[in-house]
Amino acid sequence: MKKLLFVLLISVAVSQSAPAQQTLRYTVWADGVLNAQLPKSNLYGLGAGLRAEVSKPLRTSKSALFAQVGYTRFSEKAAFTANIALLNAGYRYQARKAFSASIGVGAQYWSERMRVRFTDYTIDETFTNVLPSATVGLGWRFKSRYHVGLENRLLVKPERGRLPIRDNVALSLGYTL
């Protein structure tokens, strides 16, 4: 059910962006991702991912609305590997020529594989969850088509009456087609 919901969300986002094709910009991002909670929860360390972004400049051209779909994988630190599909939509403000700041909201679909090998027993389980997310980012553009971005991704995972937060930081390189 969660998977279906996620696919539907992506479909809606893609279909909504199509009619405005004339003014749209397409950017591809390569992300290096770090679990910012390493001192607190070191199940994950580093990950990497890709995002495809479509953005539409607003009237002032200093700002734009964007929508992103992407994939991230946290490589195995010890027991856990995570494959993540993400959907994010937000607003980006371009200050002068180079610097930008963005905020976004979205959701991430996490498929986490846990493997623990005891001497007598091996545990191999997969957990799947859809986590609401919020992002705050800073960017720097150079040579008009290239970008460097730093983004903080906050994820909320409701659990037994609590709302634990997962915090990931992405350092990204982007290229606008």
């Binding site: 994988r73 490589s75 195995e76 623990v116 090998r117």
Partner: peptide
């Protein structure tokens, strides 16, 4: 490359 990065899990 990213997808192929995996080991055999946590060995106790």
């Amino acid at each position: 490359t990213v997808y192929s990065c995996q080991s055999n899990g946590l060995e106790v």
